[in-house]
Simulated scan of single mutants.
Amino acid sequence: MSGILHLAIPAGDLNTTVKFYTDILGCSLGNGEEGRWVDVNFWGNELTLHQSEEKLPNVRHDVDMGAVLVPHFGIHLTQKDFDGVKERIAEAGLEYIDEPYRRFKGDKYEQETFFIADPNDNVLEIKTMKNPDLLFPET
């Protein structure tokens, strides 16, 4: 089990946030402690949602596509999975923080990306890469 990222975040109301990750993003659940925390299979990574009253603060940083919220975390998906997440977001009537946008057009790093917040305002960047194998080419 090497190479699996583990990230623990404040979830606010755990039940509400779990529904976002399962119903909207399509993630499954793993281990947990009722009412306290639960592990989410975030496309092969362990995202642990903790019942909380706190929210993470964030600020915007300038990048090529504009000012993005930091901190944020996310995932690179296949085009099919990416399109499925966008469809579920539309069906649920959720709003994007930053609408889907194509970056680095015509470049080997071309990608489509968007930003959305979970129910506790944790910011996620979801993207699909034109050439995913080029993200970290072997040296």
Score class of each variant (00 low, 15 high):
Pro100Asn: 00
Ala92Asn: 09
Asp13Cys: 14
Thr22Asp: 00
Leu14Gln: 02
Gly3Ala: 07
Asp23Val: 14
His50Tyr: 06
Leu124Asn: 03
Lys127Met: 12
Asn122Phe: 04
Ala11Tyr: 00
Thr17Cys: 07
Ile4Thr: 13
Ala67Asp: 11
Pro132Glu: 00
His6Ser: 07
Val38Ser: 06
His6Arg: 14
Glu53Asn: 14
Asp62Ile: 13
Glu46Pro: 03
Glu112Gly: 07
Tyr101Lys: 10
Leu135Cys: 09
Asp121Glu: 11
Leu14Met: 07
Asn41Glu: 08
Val59Ala: 04
Pro71Asp: 04
Glu46Val: 15
Glu54Gln: 06
Tyr101Pro: 13
Gly30Arg: 13
Trp43His: 03
Ile97Val: 13
Ser28Lys: 15
Asn15Tyr: 02
Ile97Asn: 02
Trp43Asn: 01
Pro119Gly: 05
His50Met: 09
Leu94Cys: 04
Gly26Val: 04
Phe20Ala: 02
Gly84Lys: 05
Arg88His: 10
Gly12Arg: 04
Lys19Asp: 12
Thr113Ser: 11
Val85Lys: 13
Phe73Ile: 01
Lys130Thr: 12
Thr17Asn: 07
Glu138Asn: 10
Pro132Gln: 00
Ile9Val: 13
His76Gln: 03
Ser28Gln: 14
Ser28Glu: 12
Ser2Ile: 12
Glu34Met: 11
Leu94Ser: 05
Gly3Trp: 09
Gly44Ile: 06
Tyr21Glu: 01
Ile4Val: 15
Asp39Asn: 12
Asn122Ala: 06
Ala90Pro: 01
Val59Asn: 13
Asp81Cys: 05
Phe136Ala: 14
Asp81Arg: 15
Asp83Met: 10
Leu25Ser: 01
Leu49Gly: 03
Thr139Arg: 15
Lys86Phe: 00
Phe20Gly: 08
Gly32Thr: 09
Pro137Ser: 12
Tyr96Trp: 07
Pro100Glu: 00
Ala8Leu: 11
Leu29Pro: 00
Leu5Cys: 06
Arg60Leu: 07
Phe104Met: 10
Leu25Phe: 01
Gly84Phe: 04
His6Lys: 08
Phe115Tyr: 13
Val38Trp: 00
Asp83Ser: 13
Thr128Leu: 07
Arg60Cys: 05
Leu56Trp: 04
Glu125Ser: 10
Leu29Arg: 13
Asp13Arg: 11
Ile75His: 01
Phe42Tyr: 02
Val68Ile: 09
Val85Cys: 03
Gly44Lys: 04
Arg60Tyr: 10
Ile89Arg: 10
Leu69Gln: 15
Pro100Ile: 02
Gly106Trp: 01
Ser28Arg: 08
Gly30Ala: 13
Pro57Met: 01
